[in-house]
Amino acid sequence: MGDALLEVRDMHLALPAPGGPRSVLAGADLAVPRGAFTCVVGPSGCGKSTLLGVVAGLRRPDRGAVLLDGRDVTGTTGHAAWMAQDDLLLEWRTVLDNVALGLQVQGVRRREARARVRDLLDEFGLAGHVDARPSELSGGLRQRAALARTVAQGRELLLLDEPFGALDALTRLHLQRWLAATWAAHRWTVVMVTHDVREAVTLADEVVRLSGQPAQIAARYRVDEPHPRHPAGLGPATRRVEQDVLTGLGVLGAPDDAPVPVP
């Protein structure tokens, strides 16, 4: 794809394990156009997070390349904003200073970094919690703060690793709806890993399904319904994609690849 901001080519990675290296990624390919939202789904423990970590530069792949805007960034960091399932907010920093962290790392002075992220806090519904410490926030607000910190870095590419995975169902629904609307207004380029298929089809332009370990791309699904979508009010076409993905994962009907391991 010529206009892809992110390209992952033929990614191979084996990780040390008892009894010799275990292949985790075996030839994963991705192409994410600028301004597109891609969701990666797959069976539990298939290597979704590992794939995201490799794109972020936390691990160097054994083979394959990560290209950002055509530039080879394999094994390097600092080109994408990454968010883990654990919000990783620093307890000694206020919400404002947590969100400003990325800019400070980039060499922006603390005062200026704070000034630059203030508007973002308003937009993320954190205006009343600017000076709060993370321990004073509810789970949903913590995830919003972590998302704000990710966006505030000003990178073109956002890598979200199950950002709502640890939330209760109701809070998750609220945040999915909110993210769908916020993303539609900004059109950041996003790769998001999730185990929630409804979440994936609500947010994504394309859903990529990985096979069981070692992970390869098992299938890609386009979701054409206009943004922003509502997780509880998806159109029939999107609902059909959801059924297809669930069928592919072996949750509905006959599995079309390796059986899903029971966790």
Binding site: G57, T77, A84
Partner: peptide, 12 residues
């Protein structure tokens, strides 16, 4: 390790 990984992805 999580916080260290986060800082690493920021290019720290």
């Amino acid at each position: 390790p999580g916080a260290s990984a986060l800082l690493a992805t920021m290019g720290a």
